[in-house]
Design a protein around this nucleic acid. Structure first.
Lengths: 195, 195
DNA sequence: AGACTATCTGAACAGACGTTCAGAAAAAAC
DNA sequence: GTTTTTTCTGAACGTCTGTTCAGATAGTCT
């Protein structure tokens, strides 16, 4: 027997990625087996290897896809305005984007150690690119005298770490709306960075 | 054959915990086997079970020990002064304490999902206790009119998330000394929280 | 209708997993 | 110097791991 009814490449591929994303986020890369992913998709373990050469690549492409989407999405954002409004735009964008895909965010931050050395370098480079987007804004703000930070590199990492924290506690339908969260964090960021 | 020369309970126990801490932090709980830990200690896997009933307990007691030490250490800190200097004390303490034990911190934040439900609740309760220490300072500061935060609960989590970020980039012998790092972060925290 | 291709099954591989335990040896107690 | 206790070994257990592949089937093309 082979091929249960109605199964296609175009649908199985995404379902594998979805299942892997969810399971990796929930239990961790090392704790999830290929057979678990396959069961979730409704397929035998061997079938996964039509879509990924191995488990490591599956993880890598999930991370790479996430980071690429993050950069592209920030690139699509309207860019004008002064440093301060750019910083606000970044803050709000970061919160919104990351709250929309908690699983991918979780994996991108937690499973770095499970990447092979080359894959690690690739992901780190994408992350640095994103960090540079924020640092550029901070540097410009400092040059223009609008912002005042002790150290733009550290301020960049501090802001991102603070914003990432939202993902650990925010739940849909909770006490605060997404917009309220954006406002609260933007006020803290603004005061921490403004002259 | 049994018992290689000079092996004692008093020394093997700590060495197991040390090895487990380092390996869990490096590769993740699920990716580390009991045999790997045993090899690191220089003992057969079976010997580990004289010191822990199972792998899960080993993880739990590492986390519990870390959180308990964190709370005790903060409790030992001199407590006086106004809200602002208490907030400064907390900021500096948090950075210093966490930079001294990066492996334990890593595990305490990353391996929560590998805890059994009861163990998870226990660790979460200790963490909440620590968060409450900070939130009390913020609340007092707001009441006294010294601090101004949009939401003390969120501010608490934001500050801790920001401070935890230090562990991701700080390296001994790097560009900045521990004290410089404390100063920089304290300035950001102060400005974000002060009226 | 027949040939071809894409997709999947099911079994197999060699090795690793957490955990248990009888027995051996070292250390401690007497 | 003998007994008792603590600590460890080494083998074994049943199960799971990532990955491969021949063969089977469903969909597509001519």
């Amino acid at each position: 027997m082979a091929r249960t009814q109605g199964s296609h490449s175009g649908i199985t591929g995404p379902r594998i990625r979805d299942a892997a994303l969810r399971l990796f986020a929930q239990h961790g890369f090392a704790a999830v087996s290929m057979r678990q992913i396959a069961r979730e998709v409704g397929v035998q373990a061997g079938a996964l290897y039509n879509y990924t050469p191995d488990k490591q690549s599956l993880l890598f492409h999930l991370m790479e896809g996430h980071m690429t989407e993050l950069l592209a999405s920030w690139g699509d954002q309207p860019g004008g305005g002064d440093s301060l409004s750019q910083l606000e735009a970044f803050t709000r964008f970061h919160i919104r984007f990351h709250l929309q895909r908690p699983d991918a965010v979780f994996i991108a931050y937690m499973e770095l150690r499970n990447l092979s050395p080359e894959n690690f370098i690739a992901i780190e480079s994408l992350r640095r690119e994103y960090e540079n987007a924020l640092e550029s804004i901070l540097k410009k703000g400092v040059t223009e005298g609008v912002l005042l930070v002790p150290d733009t590199k550290i301020a960049t990492l501090a802001v991102i770490a603070m914003l990432n924290g939202v993902n650990t506690w925010y739940r849909d339908g909770g006490r605060l709306s997404l917009d309220q969260v954006e406002v609260i964090y933007w006020e803290m960021v603004r005061r921490a960075m403004m002259v």
